[in-house]
């Protein structure tokens, strides 16, 4: 067997190693015991490659690599166009089109919302799908049966004992929801939109669950409602935007009224799409919290 191994060429060793049949060949120690110097070198080499030294070497190499990396990137930054310049190549005719005819074409005065929900709406659809996928993956990984609840998990169902905290949180929760609704509904005429408003509403749900226990949230927000809101919002988004893309591509007349600019009911499909996105984000944010703490929604 040993002879066989010796007969193998370097190339065969490499092939075997690639196939995972053989561990990587270590360079054989030179058997030059006659000379003390060589022995010493081997000892030193062993010492250097011992575990502790390996981590030190790893640290130095990583730091060096990162420094080189930062240096290259800094060099790139130094050749970029000036910060804040109005003639930067990034502000080209696309931006001009978005800003100058955005209100007219979409009915939304917030150009960022007009861009993400009208011009590039399928990009946002993909984002919503990513959020949905993430929360479904977390459900797959962390959701468990109610039967095997531990003491620690039961603690999340208990009410908060601190009276001041409880009162203040109960006053704040409806206000947070109201503010979230405001941000979602005004997404096309002021800063905000589905993502930020949904995050605010999710924060309100989390606050409520923190103070009153997650059991009390389950009175109105169970796993079933969570799934239903998510799926219905995603489907509604897909159908609404799909319709407008198909109709636009086939030169059908635009039946969705754009409304007058700067009104609450303007912007055509942007308002319902914002609501869909907001619902998805709210469910996702609360879903993450509930699954990471108690392992159940």
């Amino acid at each position: 067997m040993i002879n066989e191994k010796k007969e193998k060429s370097k190339w065969q060793h490499f092939v075997d190693w690639v196939n995972g049949e053989e561990a990587i060949e270590r360079p054989k120690k030179i058997s030059l015991q006659k000379i003390n110097k060589k022995k010493l070198i081997i000892l030193i080499r062993k010492y250097i490659w011992s575990r502790r030294k390996k981590t030190a070497l790893h640290l130095i190499m990583c730091t060096f690599a990162c420094m080189v990396f930062i240096g290259i990137l800094l060099h790139t930054v130094s050749t970029l166009p000036y910060f804040g310049g109005s003639t930067n190549p990034a502000s080209n005719e696309v931006v001009e089109r978005y800003i100058e005819s955005g209100v007219e074409e979409t009915g939304a005065s917030n150009i960022v919302t007009a861009m993400i929900l009208e011009y590039r709406a399928f990009d946002t659809f993909g984002e919503s799908c990513i959020l949905f996928l993430a929360v479904i993956c977390v459900v797959m990984l962390l959701k468990k049966d109610a039967a095997e609840e531990t003491e620690e998990e039961k603690a999340f169902d208990q009410e908060e004992e601190n009276v001041i905290l409880k009162k203040v949180a109960n006053i704040l929760t409806p206000l947070l929801f109201l503010f979230g609704c405001y941000v979602i509904l005004n997404g096309h005429i002021s800063p905000g939109g589905g993502f930020s408003g949904g995050a605010i509403m999710g924060a309100g749900l989390i606050l409520y669950a923190c103070v009153n226990g997650q059991k009390s949230v389950q009175r109105f927000f169970t796993y079933k409602t969570f799934l239903r809101i998510n799926v219905i919002s995603l489907l509604a988004y897909g159908i609404l935007k799909g319709y407008s893309f198909f109709a636009g591509a086939n030169h059908l007349p635009d039946v969705i009224p754009k409304g007058t600019g700067w009104d609450l009911l303007s912007g055509g499909l942007i308002l319902p799409l914002n609501i869909c996105v907001g619902m998805i984000v709210m469910c996702t944010v609360y879903g993450f919290y509930a699954l990471f703490t108690k392992g159940d929604i």
């Binding site: 109005s86 930067n88 990034a90 502000s91 696309v94 931006v95 001009e96 978005y98 800003i99 100058e100 005819s101 955005g102 209100v103 150009i111 960022v112 861009m115």
Partner: peptide
Amino acid sequence: ARVEDYINPV
């Protein structure tokens, strides 16, 4: 709406 008044939204 003039481009000269607003930053790049992309």
